[in-house]
Design a binder for these strands. Structure first.
Length: 805
DNA sequence: ATCAGCCGGAGA
DNA sequence: CTCCGGCTGATA
């Protein structure tokens, strides 16, 4: 029996279609179509994209339709990734199609086009007059255009008469980049002969042939024309004589095309690095899955441990994935990997165009690279012989995806590593409490790098109580101590970093007189100011408007946007330290592509004395001349309604402090705060992770938070407040009835953002230690509410949420 | 998601 | 009695 039937997951993200559909494989494709390929299938009246998940002989359905065509020559998802998709679906309660799509570059997502054309044998003159003009020039008209012209009802009438046909097409979003190449068709000696035979006046042609005699290999046409300053006619003549041939060749868009990377060799390891790397190497050697927590203070040389572990993996013919948080995926970081492994490295981050991402992905798929360095989604890199997965800055919250599928890269890493029997290395100077607790319980193996390389001491940290400053009459944002030290650095020609701890990267518009903040009319959230367009925009619903001239509340003219605050700091710096050269890094100054990199380069080259910025400068900065780090306001994020706010504050302060004195010059850190007595500020000051860990663990325990309890969050939204409340109430009661006494069920309560896009949001939070049946219960709830679309209810579930919104 | 099919109310 | 519009259910 021939395997003629394919099970397909279709690109329709709803409950009802979240299952496989069977299709006949036409004879011509029978040897082509395999599981993991994208195909175009008919679905109702349209054509859509789908993923083949299996091939079989029998179907329970009688009348099967045929696959239209495959969209790939090779599967884009291998067996392991298909399985991983199933696992993701189960763990995060998402639709299968989302799980598959998240594993692929966005360029592979289908684009759909709908149009109308004349039916077979129908002439333009058969149509009503109004339509004839539309079909005069084109035999096909775009649906979007039809909508704009308002002729849709007419079209529908004609379609029902059989005069017109509606066409549904699946379009590939991304084209492979093709370039014209020229290569010799003759051997070198033959070329030489022809060269002599050419008439003397064919000077340009001689030049070209001569070039190929010197350089016997394919050359890009455009490049050739420029290099030899000839026209395409010259080449064409030689092609017509069959001396040369022109061909289209697929090339990669290389984001690092014009960059050279200085090759580095493995550095000698310190004793503690040696001690830390050995268990990892053993795990690689013995093909034993294990999770390591590499706990190393800032500047202790974690990266070198990664690099040498990867080298081992490559030597064994295996592959490595390195995850780095998006904001730390700086050129410096990329340099270190490209410098060590050269062309064997692919890089995936949000700064690349979707075409570039697609090309990097294909390098991985074709096994042309051995290492991928990337942000969260790089965890799905289609390697088939993984030898190690490394997650740097393991504690970063950006490893959790907040949309469907709501996965955590760490969980995916461990799942994949289990399949390949390879180690996972989680690295951090300030591990998440979850990971450290697991290391304490020996679930993970703890590896420590307790000291900085070359035994530089950690910078000395001083905490300044800003309330004292205020009392002694200093109303500026700089304490007198920080001011003195900044002045001193400038005199000594050393560099300083000033860090403004503001949450998020957004800026809002506020009235300076009455404090009125411009909110979104549809959502309970302030609008974000975009300096490029000079407009305010809502990040949740897309609402846009201009900044009002007068405050709607008090008519004051002093209504303007409050940036991240860096601008204000810059102004004040200009007043008190006019001689200081300042580089400001925030959303405004780094908006354009490459700006981030350029500013850092300028700072590195000593073009400024002070680097002033927000979160984005907390990571990865490693310049020898930085001897002072000042944190202007340590506690702004401490008061957020988030159970991780202490942890985040501690981590951030520790990270920032780590920027100072990483090389010969010793570093000093000043932390200004209004709550010096808070343990997360105090212990960041003494750089005492262990003590912070035990204090914070006590808090977490008493409040039933992770790592002692797991969390699941159910959010219900509806246009009517009461409907949202009532449903949340019902769900909460249902859950209470199905969990043990030890479990805490909170709710119904309004979400931290109570309204988004005119939908009211209520939630229920579940805190539990052991609830083997909870996934089933949650699935039942989702099934229940996803089934009826008519109620207008939306229920979403986040298992292990990071943001409780 | 998207569409065909169906039912019920408003208009001829 | 037709026509439009919203609701329902199916998509293999």
């Amino acid at each position: 029996m021939r395997m003629k039937i394919a099970s397909v997951i279709v690109d329709v993200p709803t409950k009802q279609t979240d299952k496989t559909f069977d299709y006949l494989i036409p004879d011509q494709w029978i040897d082509t179509i395999q599981p993991g390929m994208r195909v175009v299938v008919p679905f109702g009246p349209r054509k859509i994209q789908g993923f083949v998940t299996g091939i079989k002989i029998h179907s329970e359905f009688q009348k099967l339709r045929e696959i239209v065509e495959p969209m790939d020559l090779e599967p884009v998802l291998n067996h392991e990734l298909l399985e991983l998709g199933n696992w993701l679906t189960e763990k995060t309660l998402c639709f299968k199609i989302f799980a598959f799509q998240v594993m692929l570059p966005a360029a592979l997502k289908a684009k759909y086009e709908k149009s109308v054309e004349l039916a077979n044998g129908v002439k333009t003159s058969d149509l009503p007059g109004q339509l004839q003009t539309f079909f005069k020039s084109n035999s096909k008209i775009n649906w979007e255009e039809a909508l704009k012209s308002g002729i849709v009802p007419l079209l529908q009438r004609e379609a029902s008469k059989g005069h017109l046909e509606v066409l549904y097409e699946v379009k590939e979003k991304m084209k492979k980049k093709q370039l014209k190449f020229v290569s010799p068709l003759l051997s070198i000696t033959e070329l030489q002969d022809e060269l002599d035979r050419l008439p003397a006046r064919a000077e340009k042609q001689k030049e070209v042939l001569n070039f190929f005699v010197q350089n016997y290999k394919p050359v890009e046409l455009r490049q050739l024309l420029v290099d030899l300053s000839i026209s395409s006619a010259t080449v064409k003549a030689l092609v017509e004589k069959n001396f040369l041939i022109e061909q289209d060749r697929e090339v990669y868009r290389d984001p690092y095309e014009n960059r050279t990377f200085e090759r580095t060799s493995p550095l000698p390891l310190t004793d503690s690095q040696q001690k830390a790397i050995q268990p990892i190497l053993n795990s690689i050697e013995q093909k034993q899955h294990e999770v390591f927590l590499l706990y190393g203070v800032t500047g202790s040389g974690k990266t070198e441990v990664y690099l040498q572990s990867i080298r081992e993996v490559i030597e064994k013919g295996q592959e490595a994935i390195v995850l780095v948080p998006e904001i730390a995926l700086t050129p410096q970081m990329v340099n270190r990997f490209k410098g060590r492994f050269g062309d064997l490295v692919a890089v995936l981050h949000s700064g690349l165009s979707s075409g570039e991402k697609y090309d990097e992905w294909r390098k991985i798929q074709r096994k042309e690279v051995k290492v991928v360095v990337g942000a969260r989604s790089a965890i799905f890199a289609p390697f088939e012989n993984l030898g190690i997965i490394i997650i740097d800055e393991e504690h970063e919250t950006s490893y959790k995806q907040e949309e469907m599928p709501r996965y955590h890269a760490r969980d995916v890493a461990i799942e994949r590593a289990k399949t390949y029997n390879c180690p996972v290395v989680l690295g951090s100077a300030t591990p998440s409490l979850e990971s450290f607790a697991r290391a304490q319980k020996k679930v993970y193996q703890l590896l420590s790098l307790p000291s900085r390389m070359n035994n530089q001491s950690l910078p000395s940290v001083e905490i300044i109580d800003m309330r004292e400053e205020l009392r002694s009459g200093n109303r500026s944002m700089f304490s007198s101590k920080l001011f003195d030290m900044l002045k001193e650095r400038i005199e000594r020609k050393e560099q300083s970093v000033l860090f403004l701890n503001k949450r998020g990267h957004s800026s809002f518009v506020m009235c300076r007189d009455c404090g009125y903040v411009v909110n979104c009319p549809n959502c309970d959230i302030s609008l974000t100011f975009h300096s490029k367009a000079g407009q305010m925009k809502c990040h949740y619903c897309g609402y846009e408007s201009f900044v009002p001239k007068h405050c709607p509340e008090c008519s004051s003219e002093y209504i303007r946007y409050f940036g991240t605050g860096t601008q204000k700091v810059e102004e004040e710096l200009g007043k008190i330290l006019p001689e200081a050269r300042v580089i400001r890094m925030d959303v405004d100054t780094t908006g354009r592509k490459g700006a981030h990199e350029r500013l850092l380069k300028d700072f590195q080259d000593g073009k400024a004395d002070i680097l002033l910025g927000t979160q984005m400068i907390a990571k990865g900065l490693d310049f020898p001349n930085i001897t002072l780090v000042g944190v202007l306001s340590a506690d702004t994020m401490l008061h957020l309604p988030d159970f991780r706010s202490s942890e985040k504050t501690f981590q951030l302060l520790t990270q920032v402090s780590g920027r100072a004195g990483r090389h010969e010059l010793p570093g000093e850190v000043i932390i200004q705060t209004y709550t010096p007595e808070h343990y997360s500020v105090e212990l960041a000051g003494t750089q005492d992770y262990d003590l912070f860990y035990s204090k914070e663990m006590m808090v977490r325990k008493s409040h039933h938070y992770p790592p002692f309890y797991y969390l699941s969050l159910i959010t219900v939204s509806h246009e009517q407040l009461m409907a949202a409340v009532a449903t949340t109430e019902k769900i909460t009661a249902y859950i209470r009835s199905r969990v043990s006494d030890e479990t805490v069920v909170l709710g119904p309560a309004a979400s931290p953002i109570p309204r988004i896009n005119n939908r009211y949001r209520y939630q229920c939070l579940i805190k539990y230690k052991r609830e083997p049946d909870l996934p089933m219960t949650l699935k039942t709830i989702l099934d229940q509410y996803q089934k009826d679309t008519a109620s207008g209810l939306q229920v979403s579930i986040d298992i292990n949420p990071f943001i409780l919104m």
